[in-house]
Design a protein around this nucleic acid. Sequence first.
DNA 1: TAACTATATCGCAATATTACGATGAATAAT
DNA 2: ATTATTCATCGTAATATTGCGATATAGTTA
Lengths: 108, 108
Amino acid sequence: MGITKTDTYTDQTLAVASIFKALGHPARIAILEFLAKQTSCICGEIVAELPLSQASISRHLVELKAAGLIQGTISGTSVCYCINETHFPLINTFIQQLQTPTNQSCCS
Amino acid sequence: MGITKTDTYTDQTLAVASIFKALGHPARIAILEFLAKQTSCICGEIVAELPLSQASISRHLVELKAAGLIQGTISGTSVCYCINETHFPLINTFIQQLQTPTNQSCCS
DNA sequence: TAACTATATCGCAATATTACGATGAATAAT
DNA sequence: ATTATTCATCGTAATATTGCGATATAGTTA
């Protein structure tokens, strides 16, 4: 159906999944990698860097912003995008939770 | 188009994105959370825990396994699934790369 | 004001994802 | 052998995602 049963999961589970979902596309990973190595960060430069149209890049930026992974501040005619680290602890905590020693007890 | 231009991204970018993609669904997050808190890990128990049909759970398990996030070993008529931590360092490294101090220079 | 630049949004087409019932395959139990 | 149990796969339907051209919006510049 392409639809997801969001009603029955915890808010925490939904939040984590939505962040990972936003990270689940190579274009968005590439955008974040690009932003990470830049001191300046104008959308136009991303368009020049990636093999996508300006419209597609813009859509990916909207998704990253909606997920809280980037911030955008208007700077004249252009927009300065940069990484928002707010949700990183959530990701790290989730990964750590999966690393509890109880997992070692099976599938060895 | 729903299609992704995989040709033009680096293998590293594609690998990271595919792992995150597998994590980008609440059912799969819930499955991993469930596996993490169990000492035993039989598929049937997951079906009882989540609000999805056995067929849907099975498909999510296949995706998690394809992404290398879980392992499954046959145990009689049932299958023992548990978490595979192999790719966790990749995730951690990626997040760390996004936290370089250069990001602090704009969008303040 | 009028052109120019930069980014966002719309509309469409193509593909991907999700979910489920039904069915299949394989082992276990009677 | 038959039946039951467990998980995987198939087929289908519905929805989501992706990408792009075209267009809109907004600030800048002349």
